[in-house]
Design a protein around this nucleic acid. Sequence first.
DNA 1: TCGGAATGTTGTCACTAACAACATTTTGGG
DNA 2: CCCAAAATGTTGTTAGTGACAACATTCCGA
Lengths: 168, 168
Amino acid sequence: MAVARNKPLNSEEFEPKLGQVSSIEVGCLNDHVGYFVRRLQVFVFNDFIKTLSPLDIRPGQYAVLVVISANAGRSQADIGRALNIERAGLAKMLHGLERRGWVQRLPAIKDGRTNSLFLTPDGNVALRKIRKLAARHEARMTQVLGKSNRDQLIKLLSGRVELMTTPV
Amino acid sequence: MAVARNKPLNSEEFEPKLGQVSSIEVGCLNDHVGYFVRRLQVFVFNDFIKTLSPLDIRPGQYAVLVVISANAGRSQADIGRALNIERAGLAKMLHGLERRGWVQRLPAIKDGRTNSLFLTPDGNVALRKIRKLAARHEARMTQVLGKSNRDQLIKLLSGRVELMTTPV
DNA sequence: TCGGAATGTTGTCACTAACAACATTTTGGG
DNA sequence: CCCAAAATGTTGTTAGTGACAACATTCCGA
């Protein structure tokens, strides 16, 4: 690309404090909920992915397995609505979970358009192991955030998920 | 792919309540901070992107502009560290911001490896408009979450960003 | 009965994150 | 002073994700 480099510049006059070079301000980002929520989210997800990596489970897959387990027989549309996952994306994810022998799709007799989703026996066994690792992840989050903060966070957001569907 | 469909199934026995089909439980997801934080993050980002769409600014670009503005002359490594953005990704993003005439890269004289980053006059003008829309976005978040919840959320997470760098 | 709506599937596209590889430059220990 | 190691910026590649369109099938209500 060969970007033309401008003339050099003595950065001394712009470095606020010599010897204190590591201090840097994020300015008005401190007034944005999204800034903190974003940083927290990638932090939590990274830990989840790393903790669950022995079982090769990602957060979305975990959520889908849990919701199927708690709502056996529901349709893909139901599961997708509950987790705000788009139809197409959920279909592909379920394809993977079915290939691993954890999820079974049965055509519902009441509505020929829908599939009824179930966990297979293997799926239940796997989910037990998965929950153990997920609990370990959650324990670390509690430790890092502090139990009080973590509990407050959950209480703040509980029941407000419906507001967080697509539109505003 | 032609997945073999199993025999149909009467879903009646699996639907907990007839006529109450819309109720669905997310089970133990309610005990996971990550679940709520993820949903909130998607919601907040969607609103930010939509609100800032007239200026074609994404959250990451906004953060970089703000931090450059608050720390004129710092290197890419400094900015990247502050926002936890990887070197390669930041280089590409800055390329775009430079092409739009908002950011200027000057080679630092003190350290031939680093670029000193600045907002151009155009960049400052643009950032003023961007901040206006960002404030509108933040106002809507405050309204949706409730001012008390929003303030608590920020207080909870303020100063804890350092814990959310890569490792745990 | 018929047209619109819902459901599931596939394919495509754009965006992102993460990693590797490289050139340049600084730094620190001998 | 010199050279190996580290830091910085850049480019390219890759996998993963999300959003969207298009389609076939099925249900539903006027």
